[in-house]
């Protein structure tokens, strides 16, 4: 056992070193290539500002209190959307899992709409909710609803019928059935879908801000684009991507603690 562990460990360790080296080299190569093209004058410098310009724009941005105010707005819109869309999705998934009739009637609609390009709902949401935070939250909620609903329903369907019959034979109520059998078995798929839902909700809120807004990170990005402040725009994109990936990694780690992949 110990030797097997050792032999399995030894190559993976040397592999780990080469993997890190490949990543470092790739990053360095990409950055060097970018800087070379940027300073070569082949491309208009406005389109590819130097790494130095982007770096200093990033530092300026991170020192600016206004940036955090806009970040807070986007986080609020996406967060409220996840909360609303996620909980409605959870309830909907549970309802579909408990009732065969509901599942037969609603499941085709949920599955047909799940991959549809939801961005086209935005004009309707703007007509209904105005142009403030409302349509952004609604956009995030619609985006977050589908992954959670589909995963919850999938988890509910995966419950062994034997377990259900056992609990039924003890004369358990529907509430007890949900609490004792269904809820424990949907924890893993729901946590997994939460990561996906957060990602699409964030995109929904940001795109709604890009389309029409005067607040939020999406608004800042499109403002910089319109004013051709490209270094600032690159810096914003770096911040937004870093934040999105950090949230994604945190949710993945959180889900792993409960056995989600």
């Amino acid at each position: 056992m110990a030797t097997a562990g050792l032999t399995a460990f030894a190559p993976s360790q040397s592999g780990g070193v080469t993997v890190t080296m490949i990543r470092m080299l790739t990053l360095a190569g990409l950055l060097a290539a970018y800087q070379a093209i940027s300073s070569s004058g082949l491309v208009f410098t406005g389109a590819m500002p130097s790494l130095w310009a982007i770096g200093s724009a990033l530092l300026r941005q991170l020192a600016d209190a206004g940036f955090y105010a806009h970040l807070g707005i986007t986080a609020y819109e996406a967060g409220a959307g996840i909360l609303i869309g996620g909980s409605v999705g959870l309830l909907c998934g549970i309802a579909l899992g408990v009732s065969r009739l509901l599942a037969a009637v609603l499941d085709p609609w949920v599955r047909a709409l799940a991959p549809a390009p939801k961005i086209v709902f935005l004009p309707i949401l703007m007509v209904v909710f105005g142009i403030d935070a409302g349509p952004k939250i609604a956009m995030a909620a619609i985006s977050a609803f589908f992954p959670v609903a589909v995963a919850t329903f999938g988890g509910m369907r995966g419950v062994s019928p034997i377990l259900i019959r056992v609990v039924r034979s003890f004369d358990a109520s529907l509430l007890q059935l949900v609490r004792l059998v269904y809820l424990p078995s949907i924890v893993v798929p729901v946590l997994g879908s939460l990561r996906l839902a957060t990602g699409v909700a964030l995109i929904g809120a940001l795109l709604a801000e890009v389309k029409m807004s005067n607040r939020g990170l999406g608004y800042l990005i499109i403002q910089d684009y319109n004013a051709f402040r490209t270094a600032e725009m690159y810096a914003l994109l770096i911040s937004v991507f870093t934040l999105a990936l950090a949230v994604n990694a945190a949710l993945r780690a959180f889900g792993r603690r409960y056995g989600a992949v």
């Binding site: 490949i22 990543r23 790739t26 940001l206 795109l207 994109l237 991507f241 994604n248």
Partner: peptide
Amino acid sequence: VLGQAYEPWLEAAFAAPIILLYPLFLI
């Protein structure tokens, strides 16, 4: 080794809000 090095990056890119890069591509 290449696969091991780049797989996590691809997974990250799959989860990233790539659509937001569209102003960059517009430029």
